[in-house]
């Protein structure tokens, strides 16, 4: 997910113009999509899982983003928060870079810095054998932390995307490509080591995806993936597939929970799909079916509104 925030920032902050009217409509549309897809997903999954659910139950589950059902919609909530800040960020990025960098530093210290502090304390407490820290998600800055509880890291990735993309001509060098190529496996190894340590300490396997979004390792990997990806040139069949997937990422994201839940029972019958290669094929199947559904649903009047953040479609 951090990659999406990063790309969003790269494109939006480096746009030449800004319309507040269009922007407000985009915020409203994003909010509407959370509610619409909350209902669609809750009803679809209750049918697939054979669980009856009341209207009031659905509303409550959407509001609390029920885990395993609609919690993936947090991404749209985080986008709305970013878009609320965006007019000021855009203005500062274009006219007052120092103000922008001040805000960026605050975001990074209070989100990534906070998590890094937790990481150091966790490692220190494990190595020393003394009780220092109990949980990864502690807010060490208390009431001073302006970005606690609002996915502050997503704002950090968004702003970083804008900065890095604006400097791409000086950043995209062979030296940085080599560094990025090394940084990815090193970051993975460090995050893995920390994940194993923390898993044993808490007595259950740590969520190395979501809970590491605001780690410095993920941050380094996102920038490294950007540096390596930017030398890619789209061509041939693979290029067409990548372009097509890229154009439909929002739709795939909004549909994948339903499609995955629908086909998972067929795949887990076979041992092969419990291997990593099998899991990749399963994910490929979800991707393909989502694309197929989007293609069909976009042909139905009004349904294409469900797959875009734009209020008015061309």
């Amino acid at each position: 997910m951090p990659i999406f925030f990063f790309i969003n920032g790269a494109l939006l902050l480096n746009k030449s113009g800004f319309s507040l009217k269009v922007h407000v409509s985009k915020i409203l549309k994003t909010g509407i999509l959370v509610i619409a897809w909350g209902f669609i997903t809750m009803i679809s999954l209750s049918l697939i899982y054979g669980e009856s659910i009341s209207v009031s139950g659905i509303i409550k589950d959407i509001y609390t983003l029920k885990t395993g059902w609609v919690n993936h919609l947090w991404f749209l909530e985080a986008l709305v928060v970013i878009y609320i800040f965006f007019p000021l960020l855009f203005l500062a990025f274009k006219t007052k870079k120092n103000y922008f960098y001040f805000f960026f530093a605050c975001v990074m210290i209070l989100s990534f810095g906070n998590t890094f502090l937790g990481l150091l304390l966790n490692v220190a407490s494990t190595v020393s054998g003394k009780f220092l820290n109990t949980y990864f998600f502690l807010n060490y800055f208390g009431g001073f932390n302006a970005f606690s509880g609002i996915y502050g890291f997503s704002i950090g990735y968004f702003m970083l995307g804008g900065i890095v993309f604006s400097m791409k001509d000086s950043i995209l060098t062979n030296r940085n490509r080599i560094l990025s190529f090394i940084a990815i496996p090193v970051s993975m190894a460090l995050l893995f080591s920390y994940g194993v340590l923390i898993s044993f300490r808490q007595g259950e396997t740590w969520d190395i995806g979501f809970e590491a979004f605001d780690s410095v390792f993920a941050l380094v990997m996102v920038v490294s993936i950007f540096i390596l990806s930017m030398q890619y040139n789209n061509h041939g069949l693979s290029g067409k597939i990548i372009r097509h997937v890229s154009k439909n990422t929002l739709g795939i994201y909004l549909l994948h929970r339903i499609v995955g839940a629908l086909i998972k029972p067929f795949f887990i019958e076979f041992d092969f799909f419990s291997t990593f290669i099998g899991g990749m094929i399963f994910a490929g199947a979800i991707l393909f079916l989502c694309l197929l559904l989007i293609y069909i649903l976009k042909k139905v009047p009004y349904f294409n509104y469900l797959f875009s953040l734009k209020l008015k479609l061309a």
Binding site: M1, I3, F4, F6, I7, A10, L11, H72, G209, I225, F226, S229, M230, Q231, Y232, N233, N234, G239, I241, I242, R243, V245, S246, T249, I252, Y253, H256, R257, G260, K264, F267, I268, F273, S274, T275, F276, G278, G279, M280, F282, A283, G284, I286, L287
Partner: peptide, 23 residues
């Protein structure tokens, strides 16, 4: 930007594997 398209395609594929870890 082709590079950004590649990143988005990779990112959504990562999400799908991560959200449905049958391995």
């Amino acid at each position: 930007y082709d590079g950004l398209d590649l990143m988005k395609a990779m990112a959504i594929y990562f999400v799908l594997i991560y959200h449905f870890p049958i391995m």
